[in-house]
Write a protein that binds this DNA or RNA. Structure first.
Lengths: 358, 358
DNA sequence: CAGCCGAACGTTAGCGCTAACGTTCTGTCG
DNA sequence: CGACAGAACGTTAGCGCTAACGTTCGGCTG
C-alpha cells in the first residue's frame, strides 16, 4: 500500500507562486483574485490532487459541506430515504454521512450529535420513535431537521401524512361497502403507527360505524404479528369483511393467515396495507395500500436543512407531505349476499357511511 | 433553540487549575498526571459537559476513534452488516459513520475516501461490485478493509464463502436424487454471483452430470427475474426437477412462476435459494437456502480494521467465512416415478453423483 | 499632481488539540 | 551532601485552514 502525500493548501500556493490566502480565495471561489491567477491556481490544485481538509475547515468555523444523518437503519424505508437524501445532497454539492443508531437503544445520543456537530454543517434525524434524543439536541448549536417525529416536535420537521393516508384507506373500504372493518396496529411507540390507528377510529366514527374493540388487534409491523392478528380476527363469531393493516408486511402476514383458513383475499376478506413496499405490486395478490412519499420527504428534508444552514431562519417549519392510496387487487366491493346478511346489523350505520362515501 | 457553549479543553484546564496538557493527559488516560489530579480533571470535564473536538484531534494526527464505512445501502444485507459493524465498533469505543454510495454510480470515489480520511481512523468498504474504486484507494494513506470483494482484492478483506455455499446447495439437490438441475444466476457484476455460478458448474462437473446451457438462465437477483427465468425453464421440453437460484428473492420469484404453471414446490420442482433472508423461514414454502454469516463478517471486518489502525501490519489478510446450508421445505427427494423416467438419460452420470453424495 | 479609492494581493492570528520538548521538585544513592 | 533520575507538571510549535486585517499599486478625481 503505497503511501501518498496529500498536498496542503500551502503547497499548492507555493507551486502557484502565490500566497496561502490567494490560493484559498481562488479555491473557495471568493473575490479578490484576478481571473487569470484564479484559473492558474485551480489548475495547479487539480494537478496536484489537492483536496481541502474538512477537519481544518471546520476548526476555523467554516462550512464543511457535509450533512449528518442519524437514523435507525433497520427501520423500513430508511435506506430509501437515505438514498434519496444522498442524491439531493450531492446535487447541492454536499456530502452526507450517516450515523447508524443501535436498534432500540435509548442511550443518550448527546455525544452523537456533538460528534456530528464537529464534522457536519447540519443534521437530519430520522427517528420514528418518540425519544429523549431530541431534547438533548435542542441545545446542539447546529441546524437539525427531523423526519417522522410528528407535529409535536420542537424542530423543523418533515413527515408523511399518515393520518390522511389511514383515512383514505378506511374510506376506500367503506366506499366498497364494508362495515365490519378490522385494524391490525403497528408498534405504537411510532407516531406513524398511532396516527394510522387514530385514522381508523376517526373514520369509523365519522361514518357512524360502531367501534368494536375486538376488531382492533395489536401488532408490531412484523409479518408474524399480522398473521397472528388475523387468526384472532378469523376466530371471532362475527368476523370482519375487511382488514386495514398498519403496514404492508403485516398485511401480507394477515393474508397468509386468511388463506390458511381456507378463505380468499379479496373474495372473502379485503385487505389494505400501508407503505407500498416494492413487492406490494408483485406479490399475489397485489396489495391495495397507501404509498409514502419517500422521495419528496428526502428532498424536502435536505432542502430544509440546507436552508437552515444557509442561515434562513425558517420558523420551525413543519412539512407534512401527502400520502397516496394505491388501489390494487386485495380489495373488492363487499359481496351482496353478505351485505344483505349484515344489512340489519349495520342499518343505522349505513346512512352515515353512505353519506361519507358521497 | 437555545445555543450552548461547548467548553474547550483550555477552559476545562483553567477551571481545574491545571495546564492544557495536564488536562489533555488526564482525559486521554496518558501517564504523567497524579491520580488525584486526574480524577479532579475528569470530574470537572464531565460537569462542564466537555466533548473532545475530533476535528482538532484529527488535525494533529491523533486518532478520532471513528471508523468510516462506504456502502451501497440498497444492496441486500447492507443494513444488517452495518448494524453488526456498528455494535462491534461501539463495543471497542469507536463510532462509525457511513457514506452511502449512490446506486450504480462509478464516479471516482477518490474524494470520498479522502474525505473519510480526514475524519476517520480507518475505512471499511462494502463493495459488491468490481470497481475502479478500489484502485484509487490503494494510495489512500489510511487502513482499508473490504467486504465481498473477493480474493483478488489487494486489501485485507472479509468475504462469505459463496462458492462453498453454492456447492453445498447443489450437492444437497444431487443427494436428493435430482439430475436435471437449473441455475438462475444473479447479477454477474457481483463477485458473489459469479462464485455461485461457478459452484453450480463445478459441482455438476464433479458429479459428471451433463451441463445443459439451457438450464442456466440469467437473472439479476430480483424477484421478477426469478419469475421470468422459471417460466423459461418450465417451457423446456425436458424441464428441470430442481432449481438453484442465486438468491432468495429470485427463488421466490421462481416459486411464484412454478405455482402459476400449476406445479408445486417442492412436489414437482425443488428450489434452493441463497442468503436466508428473514422471511425465508416465514413464507410458504419455507425456503431451503444458504445462510450468509453476516454477524461474523461484521465482527471480523471491524476487528481487522481496528488491528490495522492499531498498527498491526496484518499482511493483507483475506478472511473467508463459511456459509451454511439451511434445509427447509422447498426441497424434497426426487420422486421415484420421475427418477425412473430419467434413469436412462443420466445413467452414466448417476455413478459419479452417487459417488459424490457419499 | 496630491489625494484617495478600491482591486489584488500578502501577513497575522487564531480555531482546539497534541507531540515534543522544557521545567520543577522530590527522592535516592554513592 | 551533591549529583542525578524520574515523576509531575508547564510551554512552545504547529496540524491546515480562514477571518481580519495590512500592503501595494494603478487609476481616477478635483
Amino acid at each position: 500500500m503505497m503511501k501518498r502525500h496529500y498536498p496542503t493548501l500551502a503547497e499548492v500556493a507555493k507551486v502557484a507562486g502565490v500566497s496561502l490566502m490567494t490560493a484559498s480565495r481562488a479555491i473557495n471561489n471568493r473575490p479578490g483574485v484576478s481571473p487569470e491567477k484564479r484559473e492558474d491556481i485551480l489548475r495547479i490544485a487539480d494537478e496536484m490532487g489537492y483536496v481541502a481538509n474538512r477537519a481544518a475547515q471546520k476548526l476555523t468555523g467554516a462550512r464543511t459541506r457535509i450533512i449528518g444523518v442519524v437514523a435507525e437503519l433497520h427501520t423500513p424505508f430508511t435506506s430509501d430515504l437515505l438514498l434519496g437524501m444522498g442524491a439531493v445532497a450531492r446535487a447541492a454539492d454536499y456530502e452526507m454521512l450517516v450515523y447508524s443508531l443501535p436498534v432500540c437503544d435509548r442511550r443518550p445520543p448527546h455525544s452523537i450529535i456533538e460528534m456530528l456537530r464537529q464534522i457536519a454543517d447540519g443534521v437530519i434525524v430520522i427517528l420514528p420513535y418518540e425519544s429523549d434524543y431530541l431534547e438533548s439536541m435542542a441545545t446542539a448549536h447546529i441546524p437539525v431537521v427531523t423526519i417522522e417525529q410528528g407535529i409535536e416536535s420542537a424542530f423543523p420537521s418533515v413527515t408523511a401524512d399518515n393520518y390522511q393516508g389511514g383515512c383514505a384507506a378506511l374510506r376506500h373500504l367503506i366506499e366498497l361497502g364494508h362495515r365490519r372493518i378490522a385494524f391490525i396496529s403497528g408498534n405504537d411507540r411510532l407516531t406513524s403507527a398511532r396516527d394510522r390507528r387514530r385514522a381508523y377510529r376517526d373514520v369509523l366514527a365519522q361514518a357512524r360505524l360502531p367501534h368494536d374493540p375486538a376488531l382492533e388487534v395489536d401488532g408490531d409491523f412484523l409479518r408474524k404479528s399480522g398473521f397472528e392478528a388475523a387468526q384472532k380476527l378469523l376466530a371471532l363469531d362475527d368476523r370482519p369483511t375487511a382488514i386495514f393493516a398498519a403496514n404492508d408486511t403485516s398485511a401480507y402476514g394477515a393474508i397468509a393467515a386468511i388463506r390458511e383458513a381456507g378463505l380468499s383475499v379479496p373474495g372473502d376478506i379485503s385487505v389494505v396495507g400501508f407503505d407500498d413496499i416494492p413487492i406490494a405490486s408483485q406479490l399475489h395478490p397485489q396489495l391495495t395500500t397507501v404509498r409514502q412519499p419517500l422521495q419528496q420527504m428526502a428532498r424536502a428534508s435536505v432542502n430544509l436543512l440546507l436552508a437552515l444552514i444557509a442561515g434562513l431562519d425558517a420558523p420551525s417549519e413543519q412539512i407534512v407531505l401527502p400520502t397516496q392510496l394505491i388501489v390494487r387487487e386485495s380489495t373488492t366491493p363487499l359481496k351482496v349476499k353478505r351485505k344483505k346478511e349484515e344489512a340489519v346489523k349495520v342499518e343505522r350505520a349505513s346512512a352515515g357511511a353512505a353519506n361519507l362515501a358521497r
